[in-house]
């Protein structure tokens, strides 16, 4: 009955030809074209854009957020979400600042930053997997809770005086214009790309996001996978907290405010389905570049940050709405 049933074919081929067509229709390509257009537009708009040091500065716009976005992409593909990432960054940064007064060194600061991130991730993960609560509500709660604790500790004060070798993590350069953060970003992009696309664990993430019930019925330990993803997201928030705190050189409770929305936007813009089950790290990387270049380019034109956010918001809705709108017009239903 089905059109794809070919009764004569005894031997089923592994793949059909036409892989090229698939790539041509891919989200990543569309996004890449947008990125190129923005790049060209920026070079036309400002003579300062193509300067190597300027471009290098521009990467700080997205490296920290993108590192969290990689883990978030995995989490969203599995069908969950973590809106508390910016709260985790605030709490983790506060913990590092608090530890400062005991005169601890950079290794201890890093350990504290990452551990707080992991603990926060474990807390989210336990609430979602052990108690079976919806992650969107849980993490709206923990986002207030984590940042709220920072406010309790700091009030309207700030922690300052981070050691210089700590500051290098946020401001240092490994080679010429290549910053430490950019290296970290690249390394994590590769690591997360490999995890998601080349391991059994990554396959399980896709299966869970597509059909959590069938995943359970196939013997996948769904809760364990989700717990690990919450831990990873917490850990990456800790990494971002270390970098951001080092770069800013101070901790205020409002640090990284509203980053959760930018990070989710980055992930969704990167072609990850907010409903779970589909997406790629490559897409998130390109989305990070797009968002970073938009911010930088408009910044060169002295456009205020909030106007850039309109552009990002419109981009988010536009890129998702456009294909659907075309389909709607094509099928003739208004």
């Amino acid at each position: 009955m089905s059109l794809t049933d070919t009764p004569t074919a005894r031997r089923i081929p592994d793949r059909l030809s036409g892989q090229g067509a698939r790539i041509l229709r891919s989200w990543e390509l569309l996004l890449f074209i947008i990125a190129v257009l923005i790049f060209v537009g920026n070079t036309q708009a400002s003579p300062y854009f193509l300067d190597a040091w300027n471009l290098s500065d521009a990467t700080f716009n997205f490296t920290e957020k993108a590192m969290v976005a990689f883990a978030m992409a995995l989490l969203i593909i599995s069908g969950e979400i973590d809106l508390s990432v910016a709260g985790i960054i605030a709490l983790s940064s506060t913990a590092m600042g608090w530890a400062l007064q005991f005169g601890v060194g950079t290794p201890v600061l890093i350990t504290i930053g990452l551990s707080v991130g992991l603990l926060c991730g474990a807390f989210n993960g336990a609430l979602v997997t052990r108690l079976g609560l919806p992650s969107i509500v849980v993490t709206i709660g923990t986002m207030s809770l984590f940042r709220g604790i920072s406010y309790i500790v700091l009030g309207d004060q700030a922690f300052n005086g981070y050691p210089t070798d700590f500051a290098w993590l946020g401001r240092g350069y490994v080679f010429w214009v290549i910053s430490f953060e950019l290296v970290l970003f690249t390394v994590f992009a590769v690591i997360y790309g490999v995890i998601l696309h080349f391991t059994n664990f990554g396959r399980h993430i896709f299966v869970i996001g597509n059909n959590p019930t069938a995943a359970t019925f196939s013997g996948i330990r769904v809760d364990r996978v989700k717990m690990i993803l919450f831990l990873l997201t917490g850990l990456m928030s800790g990494v971002a907290a270390v970098c951001l705190t080092a770069r800013l050189g101070s901790t205020r409770p409002s640090i990284a405010s509203a980053w959760e929305l930018e990070i989710v936007t980055m992930v969704v813009l990167g072609g990850v389905s907010i409903l779970g089950g589909a997406g790629s790290i490559l897409g998130v990387v390109i989305a990070a570049l797009v968002m970073g270049m938009v911010t930088f380019g408009l910044g060169l034109l002295n456009v205020p940050g909030i106007v850039m956010s309109i552009f990002i918001g419109a981009l988010l809705i536009g890129v998702i709405a456009l294909p659907r709108l075309i389909r709607l017009v094509r099928t003739g239903k208004a």
Binding site: I136, V264, T265, I274, S309, I310, G313, L316, I317, R324
Partner: peptide, 27 residues
């Protein structure tokens, strides 16, 4: 209308309009 006619997940739609509406206040 975005949720109804284009079937875009509500969280994506309102995340987008959250920044657009707020940015418009600035404009």
């Amino acid at each position: 209308i975005l949720v109804w006619k284009l079937d875009i997940p509500p969280i994506v739609v309102t995340l987008g309009t959250l920044t657009i509406y707020r940015g418009t206040v600035f404009l």
